[in-house]
């Protein structure tokens, strides 16, 4: 477990797209964000945290919409605050879903493009609307859209100027399952083109699918950053739980409990075993060997606290 990271040293992969350095933000005596530092690189980065943890404040500072109380935020090497030309490279989709009701979808996207000084506007609008698959509804007024359609059109407005950096705050609110699948494919494609995407979401299973790295904010501080597996591994004081289903649970349990790497074995009502271990690496090697020796068929081996949800729950409770 490392202490809160200081300003990161220059990285092997080249300059980060966004650098947040010792950023804090307070409102009177309320400290919303406290001494947070991290880098964001191309690809998809997930921003997670409980409600009220300071995520939205942090996103607003990252996009230059809000000033920091202390610390700096730079994107593409330039400060984000009071930097209009930078907004051409930045696409932001906030949590607020209100739009100009009477405006037609296409006009909304055109407006976004105009505000960003997009050249060849009509083509850019066509492209953005096609990306979100809203071409057949583009001439209707936005107050006639369903929630998911509104979100998609807003996303088109965010993409019309072809930004390199995308910051999306709960973009999938109200999206139905098919829209979610489509959206994930879109994000993968955009990231594959070399863009940098920061995605804030409460739906951890989806962030796990999409993001290479995550940033977890708890109570205004950065509680964890990096790859999910790596974060889990860094929590070495936390025991691992592994569920095992096999043909002879009691026999396997008896053999497993003899291992030094195993702290406890629970026998569940459904006949599966849950093994508690602090040296999961050793367990991973010894378990199949034991099963083979005893002639027991292993049907299922599942780590129970590897998921982002489990890691999140643990870090938030701490």
């Amino acid at each position: 477990m490392s202490a809160a990271p200081a300003v990161p040293a220059a990285d092997r992969d080249g300059a980060p797209v966004v650098r947040v350095e010792r950023v804090s933000r307070w409102f009177g005596s309320v400290v919303a964000v406290s001494d947070v530092s991290f880098d964001v690189r191309p690809g998809i980065t997930g921003l997670l945290g409980p409600n009220g943890a300071g995520k939205t404040t942090l996103l607003r500072m990252m996009t230059g919409l809000a000033a920091t109380s202390s610390g700096t935020v730079t994107a593409f090497g330039e400060p984000v605050r009071d930097n209009p030309p930078l907004s051409r490279r930045l696409g932001v989709m906030s949590e607020h879903e209100t739009v100009y009701g009477g405006m037609r979808g296409r006009d909304f996207v055109r407006l976004m493009g105009l505000l960003r000084g997009v050249r060849d506007l009509e083509r850019a609008v066509d492209r953005a609307i096609a990306l979100v698959d809203m071409a057949d509804a583009e001439h209707r007024a936005m107050d006639g859209y369903s929630r998911g359609m509104r979100q998609r059109m807003r996303l088109a407005g965010t993409l019309v100027h072809d930004p390199e950096l995308l910051v999306l705050d709960e973009p999938l609110n109200g999206a139905d399952p098919r829209q979610r699948v489509h959206f994930k494919q879109l994000l993968h494609r955009l990231a594959g083109e070399g863009r940098t995407i920061v995605l804030s979401s409460h739906i951890l299973e989806e962030v796990e699918e999409l993001a290479d790295t995550v940033l977890l904010v708890v109570d205004g501080k950065l509680a964890a950053s990096g790859g999910i597996r790596a974060i889990r591994a860094a929590l070495d004081e936390r025991p691992y739980h592994v569920r095992i289903a096999c043909d002879a649970p009691r026999a396997l349990a008896a053999a497993v409990v003899a291992l030094a790497s195993v702290e406890a074995v629970h026998v569940e009502p459904d006949g599966s075993l849950v093994v508690l271990s602090r040296n999961v690496r050793a367990l991973q090697v010894e378990l199949p060997r034991l099963a083979q020796q005893a002639g027991i068929r292993l049907r299922r081996v599942e780590p129970l606290d590897d998921s982002l949800e489990s890691v999140f729950g643990y870090l938030v409770e701490r």
Partner: peptide, 30 residues
């Protein structure tokens, strides 16, 4: 399953996860 177990032991590979794949509800919409 037996083949998997034996192959894993033979290769000395640390076994992280083994499970039958299930269908997911999202497939209904994919």
């Amino acid at each position: 399953y037996d083949h998997v177990r034996d192959a894993v032991v033979e290769a000395g590979a640390p076994l992280r996860r083994l499970a039958p794949r299930r269908r997911a509800l999202t497939e209904l919409f994919e």
